[in-house]
Design a protein around this nucleic acid. Structure first.
Lengths: 231, 231
DNA sequence: CGAGCGATTGAAAAGACTCAACCACCGTGG
DNA sequence: CCACGGTGGTTGAGTCTTTTCAATCGCTCG
């Protein structure tokens, strides 16, 4: 269970709303959203929802990074996406009628607001703009995953690592990338040991800077040359 | 350019409509759809749309199988999905505002109806049921791709081939699976030679029957044990 | 009949994984 | 305060899967 936040955020003043699904709402719609949401704070490595369970609503990340992943047959995680501030997660399951096909867990301490399924769906029903944003987002993610699939099938681990670092840079922005080696390996789709060896290569080639968990990209162009551009 | 069909299909009598996106329409809605669609026939290996081009509408497969794929950096195809009769393809790009992120090409002679973008979008706007079907379908595909990603990252080629055969059996139904070795390899995500060797293994183990291009599954349970179930 | 494409086979090489050991750091409890 | 245990990170060696390259085969089509 998430613990109650001491400090509730109002959607109106939410600094990260302008980026995501809930941007461009009218002030009435923002009020509506605000009434229906509940703020919760999460500790690092706390589960938000789990594959196989039934969805009760959607989660809007106010602060902190979140990994979205599936568990393979051998119990190994495959990270599909790292969500940042402003992103709404778990809405796919609102429409499919199925239980979650993925799990979500915080990568650091986080503030995440919850909007119940009924409230969310009725907002969608009445708000054309929001609905279009959702469909656009579903479509965008579908395209992203097509590229992810192609990368996994056709690129070497070295290439995929370069690609993943470029992708993560977009998530972390100015801050250094901050993931455990295991999480990074589970995103790239490789063994932890292989990942560590390749990170060292990149460090030796002065493409990245490594401070324990914190990775900084030094030569973005070279990484793009290795891993290909994010489409 | 697709050639004109000699025999137009009417949506009302379309035998494959009941399965897909356009099932459960009122008869008025079916008439509406019928007025806006254009029937085309395609030859085997004919492109329907290409990655990078701008979408003009959606395609409803009336007869024939269609591969949906991306082209990797080295020019190699990665098949993402094989669409069968009744499926609507290319609708993702209706909402994203982007050009196609995937290409689609017929795997055999096919009849495919076209519905223009404006007509399609206005149907969505006015038809809640259709809209819900679309959102459900987008969501379902997103879940499928999450499993695809996990399989590629974590399973061996042998396991992926078994999984892919089970998947393709659902597409081909009673008929034998009928793909070139190269297409099958590009779906599994492996080299053609590796695929051929593994097919022989499966044949020697009496899991499948091979007649040149045509593959029949003899032992479904064993393949599921090897490759895991389709979620 | 010859060209050409798809399918097949063999051999060698490369890439990645596994396993095992070791290190470094951190927080805890004696 | 320090020993202890645990977790996450790192390294090395060996193995195995998979790819690559090259050659051959078989069939269809013009």
């Amino acid at each position: 269970m998430p613990e109650k936040s001491h400090k509730n955020i109002t959607c109106e003043h939410c600094g990260v709303r302008k980026e995501g699904l809930f941007s461009n709402l009218t002030s009435g719609e923002v009020d509506d959203l605000n009434c229906h949401k509940v703020c919760n704070s999460y500790r690092k490595n706390q589960a938000i929802f789990l594959e196989g369970s039934f969805p009760r609503g959607v989660y809007c990340v106010n602060h902190g990074k979140v990994k979205v992943y599936t568990i393979g047959d051998e119990g190994k995680e495959q990270i599909i996406h790292v969500a940042k501030e402003g992103e709404v997660i778990g809405f796919r399951a609102m429409f499919s009628g199925d239980p979650y096909k993925v799990s979500a867990t915080t990568l650091e301490d986080a503030n995440i607001c919850f909007i119940g399924k009924d409230d969310f769906l009725s907002m969608i029903d009445t708000n054309t703009h929001l609905r279009n944003m959702i469909m656009k987002e579903l479509s965008k993610e579908l395209g992203d995953r097509a590229q992810f699939i192609t990368n996994l099938a056709q690129k070497s681990v070295r290439e995929r690592l370069a690609f993943t670092l470029i992708l993560l840079q977009k998530v972390y922005g100015e801050e250094p990338i901050n993931l455990s080696r295991e999480d990074l390996a589970n995103f790239v789709g490789t063994a932890t040991e292989t990942l560590i060896r390749l990170l060292k290569e990149f460090k030796d080639e002065a493409l990245i800077e490594v401070h324990t968990r914190k990775l900084t990209i030094l030569n973005q162009d070279a990484l793009i040359r290795i891993g290909g551009a994010v489409k």
